[in-house]
Design a protein around this nucleic acid. Structure first.
Lengths: 256, 256
DNA sequence: AAACGCCGTTTCACTGGATGAAAAATTGGT
DNA sequence: ACCAATTTTTCATCCAGTGAAACGGCGTTT
């Protein structure tokens, strides 16, 4: 049964459109969302009245403070983030490389926790930044463990390349995803960022569902050899403990 | 002319209610927002479909990842935050005390930027946390410069005390607000946090509207004497430069 | 075991709020 | 001043949203 209230759905899509096109006007947003211009105007008026969007002097719109504040509250109140924070910190203290917690939202990945060192090289992932599901350690873990319909949609859609090493062939990706599910972890070697490697492994909740990927990312010339093996073991162990903290009671994944 | 779409307004209020009562069920949220139960159920269903809220196994709701991610985008795309960030950092480097940028949202204050030192004592203000307008340096600056209707509403409403030093008498507050407008800065001595002082001054935009308050907050035994004077001068100067960066072209405020 | 209360979910007749097309107003560029 | 593009406003129309009540499940009480 579908209980969707379509005017509310349109407003939510308007917020999403604004996140992608900050500083847009009424006509542009109408085109982006498929709403009529007068509908768009009224939606924006309603959103503006509550501070979700701001209209500037040139009549361009941006996300407003109330969106920001509610986002902060969402972060503060997230049981997953609360549970994961100490484990992310611990892993960072151990490895001194970037540690990320990545989630899937529809057909994309998003970084919801990031512990990085100021003197480490910049990486694609950043707090709140969305990215692909087919490239990168964490994203591939999430794709490999996503519902079949999600996998099918991603693999039949566009598979953009971020570097020369990004795997873009659907058949090759299917094989990789199968191996990832078997292994219980994955390594991304320069698929999202040149000269960067990313190890990742799943985080499961009480029902056994993969709700996030825990990942360590750093320069390829550091993440190799014995340190790579060490990092992988620490990563899998930490993600396993986090999963237990989230109520997971399945069998421990045995690395091949 | 009122172009508010009431079902959308209800959905936005539902998000706000969830920020205040995370983990609520349908009945509680209906009561909080004044919506019927079937309306509440449908609103939540629509919000959940797009990831703005999450329903857990016990049928309780919380803000979801999409709210968090949009909040992150709002922060990333805010011209005010982008402009203020270097000034906040500079002031922090200078004073080594907590530096805050505070905004008003309806009848409350909210901290949108915070530069604090790990070894500093904890203060009330925190990123994304909303607070009063009648207590604390930054909040009082915002109240003193708010539209008359906002001032009237705040002063005729509840004025809760946070410490023994919080001013709760509306008449006394009116006198204080007048002085704040004359002085162009204010000192809060233990009104929000015991043993904490907070200096604050307004930040203006191109139209001369006070859009934020810049504030330095620290322990009372550090924020005194010559350091207090020094901090005040640095604060007022920095806020003035930030205001200019935002397009403000008014006369410089001369401190009494 | 049955009754009861509470909550979340579902149903469907009804209507008023949302809609869209077009007019009016505003803005920025030449 | 003129013009094109955009934003805002208007109003007759109608359908999407509403609300009251039924339904189902669960935990507690008798």
């Amino acid at each position: 049964m579908d209980y969707t209230i379509s005017s509310i759905d349109r407003a939510l899509r308007m917020l999403e459109a604004l996140a992608e096109l900050p500083g847009s006007g009424v006509t542009e947003l109408a085109k982006k969302t498929g709403c009529t211009k007068s509908q768009t105007f009224r939606i924006l008026y309603t959103l503006e009245a509550r501070g979700f969007v701001i209209k500037d002097a040139e009549r361009n719109y941006r996300l407003g403070f109330q969106t920001m504040l509610l986002g902060d509250q969402a972060r503060r109140q997230s049981p997953l983030i609360a549970a994961a924070q100490p484990f992310v910190n611990e892993l960072y203290d151990r490895l001194k490389e970037n540690i990320l917690l990545i989630v899937r939202h529809e057909l994309h990945s998003a970084c919801i926790l990031l512990r990085s060192s100021p003197d480490r090289d910049k990486i694609f992932a950043d707090i709140g930044r969305t990215g692909p599901l087919h490239a990168g350690g964490g994203p591939k873990i999430l794709l490999a463990n996503a519902p079949q319909s999600i996998q099918d949609q991603v693999l039949s859609g566009e598979l953009p390349g971020f570097t020369a090493k990004t795997v873009r062939d659907p058949d090759r990706l299917r094989t990789l995803l199968e191996q990832i599910r078997r292994d219980g972890w994955t390594l991304s070697d320069g698929e999202l960022d040149d000269h960067k490697r990313s190890l990742a492994t799943p985080v499961r909740d009480a029902t056994g569902t993969v709700v996030a990927a825990l990942s360590v990312t750093g320069a390829s010339d550091r993440l190799r050899d014995a340190f790579l093996t060490d990092a992988r073991e620490a990563l899998v162990s930490t993600a396993g403990r986090l999963s237990v903290a989230l109520g997971y009671r399945g069998a421990p994944v045995i690395a091949s």
